[in-house]
Amino acid sequence: MIQDYLNNSYDNSYRAEAKPSDDSFILHFHNNELLCHAEGNVASLESAIPGKAGSEEVVWKLLTFKEIRKTLSVAENKLIYLFKMDIDGENREFFLLVDASLLKGTGLAYSSIKDRENSGNSESDDYSTDGLYYIPASKFRSLIPLSTSFAVITAWQLYSWYRDNRHCGRCGALTIHDSKERMLKCPDCGNMIYPKICPGVIVGIIHKGRILLTKYANKGYDRYALVAGFTEIGETLEESAAREAYEEVGLRLKNITFYKSQPWSASSSLLAGFFAEVDGSDEVILETEELKEGTWFYPEDIVQMHEGVSLTEEMINHFADRKLDERWYKN
């Protein structure tokens, strides 16, 4: 999975007092797009396979504080410390640049990839700093190295949380940053706001040596996946797995067994993966607003993916490689 490429180097300890060094990475998002260096066929990202784009198709890197300072006079209070992790053998710190007004009139000003392509001019004024692109955060799961892509996606989750909580949801006052932990607080009413993490489940449903693979109906993603969904108020994760299975494919479950978890910043989620057996009939009744297909596969019939990104992929491959306890494969 994508987080496994970090080699335990990811350190999310909050350091409000941290100051950037020249080689610290500075991440600036415009809505859901990140400013970064990129060369090659950037348009290929529209159809890129997760975990595969890079080296040949697109060569990319993040902006450093030294590079930002060539164009901007950035006050330190305009940067928010995010985390640090190992990149190419070096321990690097990541900061968020949140004030878009600083970029006006510079080569860093916003212009989308499509704007540049439609202009027919690769030297557009909006790109006076050569090789800079705003790339949608959702595309970084396709870009290697996956360790740096993990950093970008996680930074985007934090950026979204900071952006969405500038005002207190209780009284409307402007929030301020806490000095000891990653928390926004209201100076007027004392409301404390922590980063949003939504628990969700992924369920590998097994029956008579087969696993149920599904396809989404309306998400623009045509690969096989597993039953999945968010945990509702008052549910355990196991109860969520049982409910999602019944709602999406009409199956009742037993022997719901935890496999592994994964942070999934694209939806501000923490995903818990389970394998489970069918309790009763194996007739699949699709919830057609969510799914367009639900098919039973034996291990040898599964076309595996080896992108190294998602918990879903790992669980499907784990079943296909017969790495589960043998009882799961009995007819």
Results as ranks from 00 to 15, higher is better:
Phe29Trp: 10
Phe94His: 06
Asn77Lys: 12
Pro50Ser: 07
Pro50Arg: 01
Ala75Trp: 02
Phe25Tyr: 14
Ser101Val: 10
Leu82Met: 11
Asp86Glu: 15
Asp88Ser: 14
Lys52Trp: 11
Met85Arg: 08
Thr64Tyr: 06
Tyr81Thr: 01
Glu46Ile: 14
Ala75Thr: 06
Glu67Cys: 11
Lys84Asn: 15
Ile26Arg: 04
Asn77Asp: 15
Cys36Asp: 02
Gly89Leu: 11
Thr106Gln: 10
Lys70Thr: 14
His28Cys: 10
Thr106Asp: 07
Phe65Ile: 01
Ser55Tyr: 11
Gly105Thr: 08
Glu39Gln: 14
Ser73Trp: 08
Leu102Asp: 05
Arg92Tyr: 01
Phe25Gly: 00
Pro20Met: 12
Ser21Cys: 07
Ile80Met: 07
Leu96Ser: 12
Asp99Met: 06
Leu72Pro: 04
Glu56Gly: 05
Leu63Pro: 00
Thr106Cys: 08
Arg92Gly: 02
Ile80Arg: 10
Asn41His: 10
Phe94Cys: 06
His37Asn: 03
Lys52Cys: 06
Phe29Val: 08
Glu93Cys: 07
Pro50Ala: 06
Phe83Gly: 02
Phe83Ser: 07
Ser21Gln: 13
Asn32Leu: 07
Glu33Leu: 08
Leu63Phe: 05
Thr106Ala: 10
Phe25Arg: 03
Lys61Gly: 15
Phe94Tyr: 14
Lys52Phe: 10
Glu57Gly: 02
Leu96His: 10
Leu97Val: 04
Glu46Val: 12
